[in-house]
Amino acid sequence: MALIELKNLTYHYPLTNSPALQDLDLEVQEGEFLAIVGANGAGKSTLCYTISGFIPHFFKGELAGSVSVAGIDPTKAGLGEFVQKVGLVFQNPFNQISGSKFTVYEEIAFGLENLGIDPAEMRERVDEIIRLTRIEDLKDRSPYALSGGQQQRVALASILVMRPQILVLDEPTSQLDPIGSQEVFQVIKDMALQGMTIIMAEHKVEWVAEFADRILALSAGQAIKLGTPREVLGSPELPEHGIGISRYTQVARKALQAGLWPEKRSMPVTLDECVQGFQEIIA
């Protein structure tokens, strides 16, 4: 059985008429890195909330179909059972800070403290994550006296340190500098390779194309494509659904129209694929 299984999932937020997710079927295997792309309002965050138990425990509303996450049925289990297995990094890092801690270090240790982890192990894990997310300089600072991107790194670190079986990330690099975003993608990819299951909502398709195993494209709450990065991001109907394509795909499309892209080649989604296509043309 897959680690995450959604069958015929339809969800309405309270007091709303149109569903935020509709007839969704999805299976995610252990250790897989699945990215979710979609226009604003497509349902990316709603799906993140469903997989992490915030729907139906925090957002009430109406959930139909079946959901199974690491063997948990959210309609039967409480949010407490999710916390042990699933970590959610919120879209807005400004919402993730606990508000109860004086330093970044304490903020990151907070979750482990609550689990009653042994202090020596706790220090080791916190130090490791602080290094991985490159916030060594900030550890004695107040979590509020930080730049936007620094706050996002702290929010990410405070969840990574928990080593959840399933890590759900809602646009985790939105405030990060370009090379920093790439580093975070690499850190997360490494965790997937070690067996962590990753679900990530993301607009930065050029990085999703490099790092994700599969991509789910959502539009108005429905799955419109599910497959490898090339199958999904190279598909011609994406822009109709308001989903961004990388400059690599954009430029190859323009080139194709101008007769400057090899006809037999599919649309590139990464820099390497794009280079290969144009090298054929130049040669």
Partner: peptide, 27 residues
């Protein structure tokens, strides 16, 4: 920690001698 624009990186990999950063200029 800033990268060059995607189009600039692409042009460089292809050995263009001019700096370009917009899809239309690349074409």
């Amino acid at each position: 920690y800033v990268e060059q624009p995607q189009i600039t990186r692409l042009a460089k990999r292809l050995g263009f001698s001019t700096i370009v950063y917009k899809p239309d200029d690349f074409i």
